Amino acid sequence: MWSEVFSHPWHPTEDFTHLLPENPPEYRDVFSEYAREIGTLMNRLLSLISQGLGLDEDCLLKRLDGVTGLQVIKDGKWVPVDPVPGAFVINLGDQIQVMSNGRYKSVHHRAVTNKWLPRVSVAMFYAPNDETVIGPIEDLIDEEHPPIYRSYKFKEFMEEFYRQEGNRRRVKEAFEM
């Protein structure tokens, strides 16, 4: 399966607006507001997951030091964002499973398409920087819960992700102990 994608970066503390398209004229303002809200949502979710694991509320946020980016995909071709309502999916991915030492499980991402209606995906990615070390959080490891995964840099994860292209990806399994 192939796709063409419109994408650009965004970060909650750095100004990337000069990288955004100038047309349509309101795009920069609308996207900036959307990105701020998504950033707030992600911070809240990471806080709740941290607390659910019995950790400080900012534990995962500090460890991920995330950057975000937007991608718009329509049936393999980029299109302007269409305001048609759709499903809302939050995919926190394999890193949460690894850092939680398997207490939270990631799921295989699936999308349903059909031959009658086009599908537009607007994905906002929240990922660590390349040098961020991902591994089981020490406070979640003890004699009853030994580490399931080895620590790795996020760039290693992405290299493995692209290496498995064309297959049913099982990236986190490559880092199992």
Rank of each mutant, 00 (worst) to 15 (best):
R44W: 14
L45G: 01
L46S: 04
L46P: 03
S47A: 14
G52N: 10
G54I: 11
G54P: 06
L55A: 08
D56W: 01
L60D: 05
L60K: 09
L61P: 00
L61C: 05
K62F: 04
K62M: 05
K62I: 03
R63G: 01
L64N: 04
D65I: 07
V67K: 04
T68M: 15
V72H: 08
D75E: 10
D75R: 05
D75H: 02
D75Q: 04
K77C: 09
K77T: 14
W78P: 12
W78G: 12
V79A: 15
V81I: 15
V81Y: 14
D82C: 15
D82T: 13
D82L: 15
P83E: 08
P83R: 09
P85H: 07
F88L: 09
I90F: 08
N91K: 03
N91M: 03
L92V: 12
G93R: 02
G93M: 07
I96D: 01
V98D: 10
S100M: 03
S100T: 06
N101T: 07
G102D: 08
K105I: 12
V107N: 06
A111E: 11
K115N: 11
L117W: 13
P118I: 01
R119I: 09
S121V: 10
S121I: 13
V122D: 06
A123P: 05
M124F: 15
F125T: 04
N129R: 15
N129M: 10
T132K: 06
P136S: 05
D139H: 11
I141D: 06
E144F: 11
H145S: 12
H145I: 02
H145G: 00
P146T: 12
P147I: 08
S151V: 02
K155T: 07
F157M: 06
E160S: 14
E160R: 13
F161V: 03
E165N: 09
E165M: 10
E165A: 14
G166C: 08
N167S: 13
R169Y: 11
